[in-house]
Design a protein around this nucleic acid. Structure first.
Lengths: 148, 148
DNA sequence: ATATATTGTTTGTACATACAATTAAAATAA
DNA sequence: TTATTTTAATTGTATGTACAAACAATATAT
């Protein structure tokens, strides 16, 4: 008995995007206590954990384009949350005092986010969905590269 | 044996977004034959099928904000793909000859998209994933509204 | 019948993300 | 050693999406 209220809900492109939008909205709410949007928060967590990490590496961790990462870093540098230093052709991204102070709040927000969607979806289902979605991402991503 | 290559892949927010981005990229490729980006294509399919449909209704079908729908319609009107007419406070969106001519290509593109990700993920898995993702969306969306 | 609230649509503005082109450094080949 | 190719990062620009505010039409309450 498929809930066919919606014409497009059988399309993975459509469902994936609707789902990502609501997840992002929820994540924004939960990360509000850090004063950061979710992607900035993730980036900062990486920088705090691996001081000197390079944009290339960040873009792989976050599955975002290098240019996007540059943009995120620019804004955080402007807010005094990271420092950049050039080392050859590479760039090292370092945390500041201010960002290190956010460490515990960031962790808290991340846990809260996890708790929130887990409470709604159920622990087992949430875990399974996360895994399945990520695996599907990997498969599509793999195929996409080899398709060039 | 969890593939823990990535720090964030256990986070549903992260996985959902990474997945939606790659799905969108693939959808863009498949809808390229229509000359439209995927969301415009979906909108046009709705308009073609229900001439006179209102933005409100479209925004529900597509799970997009009314303002977003207005923006999509504006651009399509500018390209001569739909016409708007005011009826009281409502707006009716009508297909043009040009958009009706696209009907079969749109359908084709949509089928190709379906085939493409189905070939990669497997028919059963793709179907299951679509359903699970959509159901999770509904649950979160529901909870989000009542949380206000 | 008039005032008030609700609803559908649009507008101004902002933001996250990406692509294509560019720069600069490093690695490899000649 | 010089020339060429590859790689990391950045910049210009574009796009999809949303929020908040404004408008305009309708419905409701007094």
């Amino acid at each position: 008995m498929n809930n066919q209220k919606n014409k497009y809900c059988g399309c993975l492109y459509y469902s994936a995007n609707a789902f990502a939008r609501i997840m992002t909205k929820i994540a924004e709410e939960e990360f509000a206590i850090t004063g950061l949007a979710p992607s900035y928060a993730l980036l900062l967590m990486s920088v705090n954990e691996q001081p000197g990490i390079q944009p290339k590496s960040l873009s792989e961790h976050m599955q975002l384009t290098p240019s996007t990462v540059t943009r995120l870093i620019e804004k955080m540098e402007h807010r005094g949350l990271v420092k950049r230093s050039s080392v050859g052709r590479a760039t090292e991204v370092h945390p500041t005092k201010k960002s290190l102070e956010l460490k515990s709040v960031l962790k808290k927000a991340w846990q809260n986010l996890f708790k929130r969607y887990t409470a709604i979806l159920g622990e087992k289902q949430a875990k399974e969905l996360t895994t399945k979605v990520y695996e599907a991402f990997l498969r599509l991503d793999q195929e996409y590269i080899t398709n060039d």
